[in-house]
């Protein structure tokens, strides 16, 4: 029988679902299966980093993982185990902008790398970011925006974070469509990430 982890990384949907059924029918330890799935997620992330996988592959892997988790979660709940995350990232598309493709890819890649991510969605106001920072206490704030109006929204959000006295406690990265290196200084962020891989590397560096 071929390797479960490899089949997930290869995105062989029908095969992996069949394999998981077999594992569950044979009462394999759900925690061990979960470890294998996590290993596979890492593998998918690596392929994305190496530019062997792109958005369609991530979407497909998300679809496969969703099905695997659905099958596995009842058994996992029985074990009562919970995993420890590496760090917390607060994420959202800034006020005025409702684009979410780039943001969702960043979320996927951070998840896959073991970070805890709170996604505030799209068109998120400065106040909402500030309030969520107080409640969630993230180490990193990730601001996404596709439109050029996002530059000023990001600037306002970061200003409000400063006004609330929270700027020193957080690292801020920005990215998306028209955002580039030039915008970092304009909005007062710490770094710009061109891709979701950059986002993961920045968080790894900071946390």
């Amino acid at each position: 029988m071929s390797n479960f982890i490899d089949e997930i990384v290869e995105l062989n949907e029908n095969k992996v679902i069949e394999m998981l059924k077999f594992k569950l029918d044979n009462n394999e330890d759900p925690l061990a299966i979960m470890e294998e799935i996590k290993e596979a997620m890492k593998g998918i992330g690596e392929r994305f980093e190496k530019k062997e996988y792109f958005l369609p592959d991530l979407i497909m892997s998300g679809e496969i993982l969703r099905q695997l988790f659905e099958m596995l979660s009842p058994k996992l709940k029985e074990t009562g185990a919970s995993e420890k995350k590496k760090g917390k990232v607060l994420l959202g598309t800034v006020a005025g902008d409702i684009h979410d493709i780039g943001k969702d890819v960043v979320k996927f890649m951070l998840d896959a790398n073991g970070f805890d991510v709170l996604d505030l969605g799209v068109d998120v106001s400065a106040d909402k970011f500030v309030d969520s920072m107080k409640d969630y206490k993230p180490q990193v704030l990730a601001l996404s925006g596709f439109l050029t109006l996002a530059f000023d929204s990001m600037k306002e959000i970061i200003q409000k974070i400063k006004d609330a006295g929270l700027r020193k406690s957080i690292k801020i990265m920005i990215g998306g469509g028209t955002v580039d290196e030039r915008i970092v200084e304009y909005v007062g962020a710490d770094a710009y990430g061109e891709s979701a891989v950059d986002a993961v590397n920045l968080v790894k560096e900071w946390v």
């Binding site: 050029t148 530059f151 028209t178 955002v179 580039d180 030039r182 915008i183 304009y186």
Partner: peptide, 9 residues
């Protein structure tokens, strides 16, 4: 000409 330049440059 980059949008970022026209807006903030």
């Amino acid at each position: 000409v980059p949008g970022s330049l026209l807006v903030t440059g």
